[in-house]
């Protein structure tokens, strides 16, 4: 990846990541279809920059709007997902494959510029969460006119 990008994670999550990595190394890749993919890591995000906003996108299939929690504080964006466990009709059945992640995930992204926390917007369509973080006026590019003599 071209840009180093620090993400702040709770020490417990860091430890869990560490354990995941260890186990993955020893036991082969996780999620081979037999075990439910609980806590398989944190969801991937794409972050890009526009002139006036930062955009964050995350794929969260099967998640309803009330299962997503987005907050911005101290220059960090935190996304919390609680994907509902199996529904009633899925009980007492045989699983042939179980690869889809369930349970809770959270992800914290440190924002490289100051954002206007009051105008952050989040939209969820077809399992894609898009968060628009307008830049604070101080972080927007400003055009300076050069005066001639």
């Amino acid at each position: 990846m071209a840009f180093g990008y620090p993400t702040t994670r709770h020490p417990f999550h860091q430890l869990r990541d560490e354990m995941d990595r260890l186990l993955t190394g020893f036991l082969g890749p996780a999620g081979d279809g037999l075990l439910p993919a609980v806590f398989r890591g944190h969801p991937a995000v794409n972050v890009w920059e526009k002139d006036d906003a930062l955009m964050v996108e995350m794929e969260v299939p099967g998640v309803k709007t009330d299962e997503v929690e987005v907050s911005v504080a101290k220059g960090e964006l935190s996304i919390r997902i609680n994907r509902a466990a199996e529904t009633e009709e899925e009980k007492h059945v045989t699983y042939h494959r179980r690869e889809r992640p369930i349970g809770s995930f959270s992800r914290v992204v440190r924002l490289p510029v100051e954002v206007d926390a009051d105008h952050v917007a989040a939209a969820l369509h077809d399992g894609v969460l898009t968060i628009t973080l307008p830049k604070a006026p101080s972080a927007k590019p400003r055009k300076i006119n050069v005066a001639g003599t």
Binding site: Y95, H96, R97
Partner: peptide, 20 residues
């Protein structure tokens, strides 16, 4: 990623395809 569930009278396939 898919879940395939066998129920008494049907097979249920759930596939995560965000953004389609």
């Amino acid at each position: 990623s898919v879940d395939i569930v066998e129920q008494e009278d049907e097979l249920l396939v759930m596939a995560d395809m965000p953004g389609a």
